[in-house]
Design a protein around this nucleic acid. Structure first.
Length: 585
RNA sequence: GGUCAAGUAGUUCAGUUGGUUAGAAUGCCGGCCUGUCACGCCGGAGGUCGCGGGUUCGAGUCCCGUCUUGACCGCCA
């Protein structure tokens, strides 16, 4: 038997017991006459001790062990002479009677501790060592607990977990597909799923009624801190439901998760139409942990000779609470921030609404106190606030102000990681005009149902049609999104038409779905959650990499095994030769 | 495809207007130490300053190119 106990469970009540422990050497402290060894496993750390009276063979064995050796130790649980209140096992130690090295270790490239000396690159190269660290492992434990809580909730609600194919058909819409050549079908390819969308709808046609799956999805697009080429979704679909039923069901799931996993009661799930979110926050995923909502000043500021504002399509202001004390240096830094190419503003106008009620602005040349007072009124600013204004093309300015608002939220420390403010964004536009291809494309996906009251606009003003689509946003992170689906093959054909498919193309791509809808399709709706993002939100992290056991780096590379890699000529031949085969016919 | 930042000891970093033999901490190795738990003390080894080119009497430092890593923009129905 390798162990009778883990390294985290022995307590003062176990004193006198003879135990066997196995684990990794965290640290050896040799004090001359006696040696302490910290033995670690995923449950904790237990101190082992060898004193002067220990047999020489044990002493000399102890001299040879280093960090990260795997040891097996048999000994007696003793009460410590000097206790350590920092760890749960700190009142006891193990007097070593027998010890053997199960596996030695070369010196690790970084230390296995919370504040490791390893940089990101090194940690990823030796991810198996990084995962030994407490704070990385606990993220994966959290992930496991969350997955179980989700399964329990959905199981209780009669959802059926069903697996769908990983090798499937490529579709041109949406993100770039990862593609897998088929050896048996020369010149043809599978695609890895970007989402099991079509399959889950077919499961509804099959009468499964409530489906879910915690499932890997794949998108061949550039990475970000919150985007990996393979990621995990909680994919759900329900039949005989309207939008309201879906929102309530998954509000319930989210509440259940917060309660079970974090013991947090989430107050409420406000809803905001997409159009309003854009007006108030310039974003379809606003962080509502803090205010600083947008105020439209376009008409208010056009009464003087300030050409920049007079010529602007849109002028917007926010009042940053208590920031009137900002120094010239801080204001310059803000200006620089919004002028970065990633934000792209031309400049920044500020108005300090001082504590004593006076105003100081960067446009004092053009506007008097009366004007600035009016601005402050519109922005609902109080003495001590800093009013920040951006202007220009409406769409671009909204995006820029959104960035500035978030930056101010960070600077003023208004984003508390332990506060959770969910929000449903609803009534998304059905279609989006794409300048590049000069046609509409689906904002969500082509199976999304338009709002019934907007259906007549489909012919006349497709851009104005709203969809029964919804996103769950928590603390400014897009956690989930879904929609009510089209379940009528005629409307689905019409949608494909609007999206620029010829009937032949639509039939080739999605004929099987429209065909399925002819055999009695139930009304259905669904949602998918980004599981990695949800876990990282719960863990208080800004990146999803640390909630994934073996993530990819910025270039989509696994720096541990160097994937992707070239493949053997033999492998390649099998595929390439056959790729040429059709031409020989 | 683009913008920005970083790359110096095993590791995390410092390195001034270009100027002796490139430093610190930690880790590693050796010695001492009976209550440590970030053990302590003494000593030691350890460097192609990412790579290539240029400017200069002289480059870790300045210039050009390139590679790698990270953040972001584009992209992500």
């Amino acid at each position: 038997m390798y162990r009778t106990h883990t390294c985290g469970e022995l307590r003062i009540s176990d004193v006198g017991e003879i135990v066997t422990l196995s684990g990794w050497v965290q640290k050896r402290r040799n004090l001359g006459g006696m040696t302490f060894i910290d033995l670690r496993d995923r449950y904790g750390i237990t101190q082992l001790v060898l004193d002067e009276k220990a047999p020489d063979e044990l002493k000399s064995l102890a001299e040879k062990i280093g960090r990260e050796f795997v040891l097996q130790v048999k000994g007696v649980v003793l009460e410590r002479q000097s206790k350590n209140s920092k760890i749960p096992t700190g009142e006891i130690e193990i007097d070593i009677k027998e010890m053997n090295t199960l596996s030695p270790s070369i010196t690790p490239p970084f230390t296995i501790q919370a504040d490791t000396d390893g940089g990101d690159d090194l940690r990823m190269k030796y991810r198996y060592l990084d995962l030994r660290r407490d704070n990385v492992r606990k993220n994966l434990v959290l992930r496991s607990k969350m997955a179980i809580a989700i399964r329990n909730y959905l199981d209780e609600q009669e959802f059926i977990e069903t697996e769908t194919p990983v090798l499937m058909k490529s579709t041109p819409e949406g993100a770039r597909d990862f593609v897998v050549p088929s050896r048996m079908n020369p010149g043809e390819f599978y695609a890895l799923p970007q989402s099991p969308q079509v399959f889950k709808q077919l499961l509804m046609v099959a009468g499964f009624d409530r489906y879910y799956q915690i499932v890997k999805c794949f998108r061949d697009e550039d990475l970000r801190a919150d985007r990996q080429p393979e990621f995990t979704q909680i994919d759900c679909e329900m039949s005989f439901v309207e939008q309201e039923d879906v929102l309530e069901m998954f509000e319930g799931m989210t509440r259940h998760l917060f309660k079970k996993v974090k013991d947090v009661e989430v107050a409420d799930f406000p809803r905001i139409p997409y159009a309003e979110a854009m007006e108030k926050y310039g974003s379809d995923k606003p962080d509502i942990r803090f205010g600083m909502e947008f105020n439209d000043l376009t008409d208010t500021v056009k009464n003087k000779d300030f050409a920049i504002f007079n010529d602007a399509e849109y002028v917007v202001g926010i009042a940053a609470p208590g920031a009137a004390s900002y120094s010239r240096k801080q204001l310059d830094a803000l200006t620089k921030y919004v002028k970065r190419p990633q934000v792209g503003a031309k400049g920044l106008v500020y108005v300090k609404y001082n504590e004593d009620g006076t105003f100081k602005s960067s446009v004092d040349k053009f506007y008097d106190t009366e004007d600035l007072e009016m601005w402050a009124n519109v922005c609902d600013a109080k003495p001590g606030d800093l009013i920040l204004l951006l202007s220009g093309d409406k769409e671009a300015t909204q995006v820029q102000m959104c960035e500035l608002r978030l930056e101010m939220g960070r600077q003023l420390d208004l984003m508390d990681k332990n506060e959770f403010k969910p929000l449903w964004v609803v009534d998304f536009p059905l279609l989006e005009w794409d300048e590049e291809t000069n046609r509409y494309h689906a904002m969500h996906h082509p199976f999304t149902a338009p709002k019934p009251e907007d259906i007549e606009l489909l012919e006349t003003e497709p851009g104005k049609v709203r969809a029964n689509a919804y996103d769950l946003v928590i603390n400014g992170v897009e956690i989930g999104g879904g929609s009510v689906r089209i379940f009528n093959s005629e409307l689905q054909s019409k949608m494909f038409g609007l999206l620029g498919f010829t009937p032949e193309q639509a039939d080739a791509q999605f004929g099987f779905l429209m065909n399925a809808f002819k055999y009695g399709a139930p009304p259905h709706a669904g949602i998918a959650f980004g599981f990695d993002r949800l876990v990282s939100l719960f863990a208080g992290l800004d990146t999803i990499r640390d909630v994934i056991a073996f993530p990819k780096n910025n270039s989509g590379r696994d720096v541990m095994n160097q994937a992707p890699s070239a493949i053997a000529d033999e492998q390649l031949k099998e595929l390439l030769i056959k790729l040429e085969a059709p031409e020989e016919k």
